[in-house]
Amino acid sequence: MTHHNLTTFLKRKMPDPPGSRIGVCVKGCDSRTLVALLQENLIDKEKIYVIGVPCDGVVSRRRIEKAFNDEVVDISFADGKVTATTRTGESQEFAKDDLLFDHCKSCRYPNPAYADDLAADPVAEPVDQTPMWAGLEEFEALSPEEKDAKLAEVFETCIRCFACINVCPVCWCWDQCVCRSRKPALVSQRVGAKENLMFQMIHMLHVAGRCPSCGACDRACPVEIPLYLLHRKMNKELHEMLGFEAGLSLEGKPVFQTFDVNDPLGEH
């Protein structure tokens, strides 16, 4: 299934001639980012045509590429097998399950939440609807000092290339982004783990309520920072707090743009 979340490209431009529409193909998680944007009227529903693609999981291109010393030029799928071929003709077969992203294996929404048309019959939704938050346990088990050390080590390597926010479909503010602002000066121009983590904190908190953990930022990161440690954890906590999940229906509202006087948040 397509590696990219194509909703991202709707950030760029809406069609100019009146009456024209942009077609966009979305898989389950992509459609949730699209719905999140529609909930906030950031995209005009009349100007897009959504083709929903029921998804059976995304394979990690990075995992394939790491198996070769050469550039991978062809990847083909057949019967649960993935065959990758490099420029020099070297080829290797993988089991698809070995290449799937962790969060795809426990995906509860493989079918689009919103689509004008479906490209195929919906795939079976998993019977077990218990949310799974893959890949967090190991980090969660660390002590505060170990977490701090680990985060410092990881975010030391960030080159602040902005790939994560450029590719993020729900990170919307573009060149008005507060991370480039001098007032308030949330992120300085210094280079270091602190600034880089602060930069990611802005991203994480600004997409809270819209982010369904589609993993686009993870896949885009050139230095392979495990950004899911932040976003997936945030979504896990939002789910445990309020049962909130982003972009499930057009009628929903982002978690921080609404409230309930009876929110079950402990008296502090």
Binding site: P144, E145, D148, M241, V255
Partner: peptide, 27 residues
Amino acid sequence: YYARRKFELLDRMLPHLGVEADRFHYT
């Protein structure tokens, strides 16, 4: 009402970011 949702999330996220839970409190 808006605020407490945000603080509750922050309260839960800070320990994940290497800050001990007792260093943040909202009331």
